[in-house]
Design a protein around this nucleic acid. Structure first.
Length: 302
DNA sequence: AATACGGGGAA
DNA sequence: TTCCCAGTATT
């Protein structure tokens, strides 16, 4: 891949490192005394959920469940309840399952290699790389939505990256990463932070960017995106309905008659059949459990 | 390669 | 309203 940069790569590395030193947010999972488990919990919570919403939940979780075994010792339903409204509660279910594996198969220590991490439920390419790099200083290549956007702009002159991650992007990310292991890990964190604070999707603060004069996007006149992202609906969807059902059970400690559960969720667009379908979907996903002689009661998994 | 999967806050 | 957020798993 021809990068054809206006300056040496090391110039990008040095500028971003300098910027990161002065501008990085102080986040608890970045503290030197944060455990790999703390990093892992943060990475699960941060999958599609912004930092500001994650922070309070993260403190609660780490205080209540300081190690994977502490979480594994409780029912999965407690994880779903403590997840609150972070969204995608299956993440809580998978984090609980991953904690169980770590407690039983890894002596309660979060694994260090990407291969082992990838085998855990809820851990994909990004999360495995992030835990390895941030918790264990493994100088691997981390690629998240922020890093993709920074690379697309700074190195390819594009307003936005392609809708889905490409092989070319992965190769480029390898190419631009510092060779020095310590610098590589800082580069991972710094690039992500630049994307979150300055090189944002909506209205980038280019005047505050340390790469302004060497950014390919700037140098080509900030072209518009070559596509328009398609938003996905929310109101009237199964996801809204499922979310309301789970939230009802979250607030209800213990079990609830199914009729009462369905009655508690009142959307004009959702008839009884639709609610039943969604409830069954939640049961199939392991997010809800039916109990009683005729499965007439519902609860979070015990 | 597409789609399902939550939820809230900013523009 | 629309778009975005430290994505993953399934089809």
């Amino acid at each position: 891949m021809p990068l054809n940069l206006p300056v040496e790569l090391s110039e990008y590395h040095e500028r971003l490192a300098e910027w990161f030193d002065h501008n990085a947010r102080s986040l608890p999972w970045r503290e030197a005394d944060c455990s790999p488990w703390g990093v892992m919990v943060s990475e699960f919570m941060l999958q599609q959920t912004p930092v500001v919403r994650v922070l309070p939940r993260w403190y609660e979780w780490l205080e209540r469940w300081p190690t994977p075994a502490d979480l594994a010792a409780e029912p999965a339903g407690e994880a779903i309840r403590a997840w609150g409204r972070l969204g995608y509660p299956r993440r809580a279910l998978r984090l609980h399952a991953a904690a169980t594996t770590i407690a039983t198969e890894y002596a309660n220590e979060v694994p260090r290699t990407e291969e082992e991490l990838l085998a855990l439920p809820g851990v994909g390419a990004y999360t495995a790389a992030a835990i390895a790099s941030f918790a264990y200083d493994v100088p691997t290549t981390v690629i998240d939505t922020n890093i993709r956007r920074v690379h697309a702009r700074a190195f390819a002159g594009m307003a936005l990256p392609e809708p889905s991650l490409t092989k070319a992007e992965r190769e480029r990310a390898e190419l631009v990463k510092p060779t020095d292991p310590e610098l590589a890990n800082q580069w991972n964190a710094a690039t992500m932070e630049l994307g979150a604070l300055v090189c944002t999707a909506r209205k980038p603060a280019c005047d505050a960017c340390p790469l302004l004069d060497i950014c390919a996007w700037q140098l080509t006149g900030c072209p518009e995106p070559h596509y328009t992202p398609k938003g996905h609906p929310w109101h009237g969807t199964d996801r809204q309905l499922r979310g309301a059902l789970v939230q009802t059970l979250r607030e209800e400690h213990g079990c609830l008659p199914v009729t009462e559960l369905l009655g508690a969720v009142d959307f004009a667009w959702a008839d009884h059949d639709r609610k039943v379908q969604c409830l069954n979907g939640l049961v199939a996903d392991g997010l809800v459990e039916l109990t009683g002689e005729n499965l007439e009661r519902a609860q979070l998994p015990s």
